[in-house]
C-alpha cells in the first residue's frame, strides 16, 4: 500500500499538523519508503495468533476508588502558555 499527496494532507489534518504543499510532497515520498519497508509483515502467517496486548502476563492492577491526590490546580496550570484563575485559556470554540 502507498499513500498519495491528498492522503498525506488528510492524515496531517487528522494529526493536527499544518503542512505546506512542499512538506506534503516530501512527506509522501518518506512515508511511502517506510510503508514499503513494513510491507514485508504481510508474508508472516498469523493465522490463529492473538495480537499482543501486554509483554508481561499480568492482570491489570486496580487501585481503590478513593481520592488520594489533588488540590493542585495552580501546579497544573503553571506551565500553560495562557491561563487565568486556574483555567486554561483557548481561542473561542462556541459562537
Amino acid at each position: 500500500m502507498s499513500v498519495d499527496i491528498s492522503t498525506v494532507k488528510r492524515v496531517a489534518h487528522l494529526a493536527r499538523i499544518a503542512v505546506s504543499e512542499d512538506d506534503a510532497t516530501r512527506m509522501t515520498g518518506q512515508l511511502n519508503a517506510i510503508l514499503g519497508f513494513v510491507e514485508q509483515l504481510n508474508e508472516v502467517n498469523v493465522e490463529g495468533v492473538e495480537p499482543m496486548t501486554s509483554v508481561t502476563p499480568m492482570a491489570m492492577k486496580k487501585r481503590q476508588d478513593q481520592v488520594n491526590d489533588g488540590d493542585k490546580a495552580a501546579d497544573i496550570v503553571a506551565n500553560a502558555p495562557i491561563h487565568e484563575e486556574n483555567f486554561f485559556v483557548v481561542p473561542k470554540v462556541v459562537e
Binding site: M1, V38, V44, V49, P51, M52, T53
Partner: peptide
C-alpha cells in the same frame, strides 16, 4: 487491521 493488528500479531510471534 492491515497494519496495527498484523504488527501486534507478529509481536506475539517474536516473543
Amino acid at each position: 487491521d492491515a497494519y496495527y493488528l498484523q504488527a501486534q500479531k507478529v509481536r506475539t510471534l517474536i516473543k
